[in-house]
């Protein structure tokens, strides 16, 4: 059960209120030489049109793998999806043909990757790579596609777009390259954009600019945005709601302001305390002790228990379900009440 499910209450006409994207009980595992790594263990989240969902979590918590499963770009093998549903506009994409899914990619769901330098093809001009969207999906001529590429580059505010359309990725700065990635995702005006740590590879000053651009582009449209990050600092300004992942599960989800005010999961609490803050200047920065679990041997019970300051015996035996904490809020902690309380 997700918190959103409980919120819905009485059954409504399915199509009218159905979220743009809904991930239900998604599992992804990787079959490697050392065994089966369960990277995603029953993730539930949803995004509505015009909404921004921030997905948070430490490295290796399964944020990217979930996104790749949505895009249909998982490495299979070694990857496998043994269970789950990914409903996009009401249809389960996992049941679609490969060709049907390809037609959704780029056109209806687009993705922005972390490292624009390696994610753009080094031997093709940016104009070619942008234009490819129009040529392949809309059958535009090379010339028309180029004109559209220049428009796009203008839209993401790349100075001198007309002169730079034939340049190659390595000739741009990191921030400009990420703008090109954003332009590519925007090209066909998709309904949903997944941005996987779009600013992590950039300088701090450029990070804010790119983030602002992304937020602004999203505001002026009805598209949904899934913003993957492990930087809680940027989330507050752009996101509507947050899903926190740990060891392949959602441990807490909530509207953005509520989670900052009052986290309902010890892990979220730890994350919030580890953000540098002006009002706590001089104090030692808090860090969650220990390391994220090895996915080949996820601890029994609550996966967070070896690192949790509040862990009790029950945490080492029983997997906590996602308890409903409030409207649109859930926490996968046996002691969510106590966590909220203090």
């Amino acid at each position: 059960m997700t918190a959103t499910d409980t919120m819905a209450g009485a059954p409504a006409p399915a199509t009218a209120t159905a979220p743009l994207l809904e991930v239900r009980d998604l599992h992804v595992e990787f079959h490697t030489r050392d065994g089966v790594a369960r990277a995603v263990n029953g993730v539930n989240y949803s995004v509505n049109a015009g909404e921004t969902l921030a997905v948070l979590g430490e490295s290796g918590s399964g944020k990217s793998v979930t996104a790749q499963a949505i895009m249909g770009i998982l490495d299979m093998p070694p990857g496998r999806i043994p269970q789950g549903e990914i409903l996009f506009q009401g249809q389960d994409m996992l049941k679609m043909s490969a060709e049907a899914r390809r037609k959704i990619r780029g056109r209806k769901i687009a993705m922005i990757f972390q490292d624009a330098l390696s994610s753009l093809n080094p031997v093709l001009s940016v104009g070619y790579q942008l234009g490819e969207m129009f040529r392949v999906h809309q059958g535009l001529s090379r010339k028309a596609a180029k004109a559209r590429s220049i428009e796009l580059m203008d839209r993401v505010r790349i100075p001198g777009a007309r002169a730079r359309v034939n340049d190659y990725p390595h000739q741009f700065s990191g921030g400009m390259r990420q703008r090109i990635m954003i332009a590519m995702a925007l090209a066909l005006e998709p309904d949903l954009i997944i941005a996987d740590e779009p600013t992590t590879a950039l300088d701090v000053t450029v990070q804010a600019q790119v983030m602002d651009l992304l937020a602004e582009l999203q505001r002026e449209s009805t598209m949904g945005l899934i913003l993957i990050t492990h930087d809680l600092g940027v989330v507050a300004d752009v996101a509507d709601k947050i899903a926190v992942m740990y060891a392949g599960r959602i441990v807490e989800n909530a509207p953005v302001h509520e989670i900052y005010r009052q986290p309902a999961h010890p892990y979220t609490k730890g994350l919030l305390q580890s953000i540098p803050r002006v009002d706590r200047k001089g104090q030692e920065l808090y860090a969650i002790k220990g390391l994220p679990p090895n996915l080949l041997h996820v601890p029994a019970g609550c996966a967070f228990n070896p690192r949790c300051p509040m862990a009790q015996d029950v945490c080492r035996t029983d997997v906590p379900p996602l308890h409903t904490v409030g409207a649109g809020r859930g926490s996968a902690c046996h002691f969510w009440k106590e966590t909220l309380g203090d």
């Binding site: 895009m71 770009i73 390809r102 037609k103 959704i104 990619r105 780029g106 056109r107 687009a110 993705m111 990757f113 490292d115 390696s118 994610s119 753009l120 093809n121 080094p122 093709l124 490819e132 969207m133 392949v136 999906h137 590519m184």
Partner: peptide
């Protein structure tokens, strides 16, 4: 390579991903 993954994510047909990218 990342750029091949991007090509797939753009929704390009398989032959185009292989030949062009």
């Amino acid at each position: 390579a990342d750029y091949v993954r991007t090509a797939v994510a753009k929704g390009l047909p398989r032959h185009r991903v292989i030949i062009r990218h």
